[in-house]
Write a protein that binds this DNA or RNA. Sequence first.
DNA 1: TTCAAGTATTGACATATATCAATTAAATAT
DNA 2: ATATTTAATTGATATATGTCAATACTTGAA
Lengths: 231, 231
Amino acid sequence: MKNLSKTSNCSACNIGIQSLFKNLTKEDIELIETNRLEVTFKPNETIFKQGTNASHIICLHSGIVKIYTESKKSNFILELVKPVEFVGLQSVFGDKVFHCTTTSIENVSACFINIDIIKSIISHNNNFCIDIINFISRKALFITNRATNIARKNMNGRIADVLMYLSNEIYNANPFPVTISRQDIADLTAMSKESVIRTLKNFKNSGIIKEEDKYIEILKFDLLNQISEHG
Amino acid sequence: MKNLSKTSNCSACNIGIQSLFKNLTKEDIELIETNRLEVTFKPNETIFKQGTNASHIICLHSGIVKIYTESKKSNFILELVKPVEFVGLQSVFGDKVFHCTTTSIENVSACFINIDIIKSIISHNNNFCIDIINFISRKALFITNRATNIARKNMNGRIADVLMYLSNEIYNANPFPVTISRQDIADLTAMSKESVIRTLKNFKNSGIIKEEDKYIEILKFDLLNQISEHG
DNA sequence: TTCAAGTATTGACATATATCAATTAAATAT
DNA sequence: ATATTTAATTGATATATGTCAATACTTGAA
């Protein structure tokens, strides 16, 4: 974890209509700009640790992170997050303690923003407030879907889900680079890594996917969708 | 589903420091008061249906409801909700469509509040806004824990969890009345109902719980906790 | 280039959990 | 009170998934 001089600015991050910053005033942005802390991480470094005080959120600037709950036995990855996106809001507002650990999967750069700054903007900027409500609501629905799919689907269905998730929502590519490990996929699907490997092998043998040079390509999207639905 | 004349008022519901109404002005409460629709349900009636438009939230006034995702194969109950509590906020703000079905378990009375009313209050009452952020954040963390526990624990652990959940958070009693079916417990724990029955039987035989006249009593709380942690 | 350490793969086997069918008990309607 | 439906229980069996141990493959360090 290395603290660098600022290589970016908030306005540059504030892209796309879905940004949480879209209703900030110039002064709000300035406030964040002067109070943020830009930090870089190499792969596999801990950004937030489950159980610690939630005093900051991050704005993920580059690189993918995983968010997971830890235990002695195993980890369960709730979601992968790609830039530009915020991490930690639920914990900050829900319990002041992080319920999950956040770890870099690739080289990551992120801005730490003290929660008091966010709260002070919330207290006078109503539109920002509404944006946060929408953001956290969408997170809640996402986790609802995750819970349901884990509870209901068999291994084939869960692997089908994770493949589409990686292609459609995380890497936005097909073929997509496999920068996560088999263990990560296991932790995403609540399976053992051996079962992940076997299921992927079956999918390859059935011509549903292809893997080459650390890239996976989805060949039969419809079939994958069907497997996701019916196991 | 029967539409009654109003038998309650919002101020009476607005009890306890954790209420979502605690920062509403007199005028805000009045606005809700005049626009709410009080409705009663017998057991097993649908209040919100998954997939339909999320135009209202409810304030649950009496009786317990279950919130679950449906599919051909099976249902997965995300949570039980007891009064006084709000239902539907995540869906309203996250996607405008209900991701879950809400069904009465007992006799239920609830007020339907149009989302436009809520939004109009949000737009001028910043403290209410913050209360909603906190509320939805806590929901998100709750589901996070549910997902994690389902993903990680074996049948014994999941049944231990559900027993403590019912006693500590839903019925607030020990012994507590079993107003939900074995199938409901199965849908809460992502198990088959036969496995639920067998696991409960084991717990009874081990003297961990006792069941009499539709009441379950937890006898060995520490042991149950241990089972929840270590399977 | 070789070595060491981690990661991926495979096969054999154990086990947890679901499914199916039959029976009993409880709730509801007639 | 009796019949009918629904829910709970039980046992036998099938199946999905995990575990363990051995081997191969990558990757980065020396």
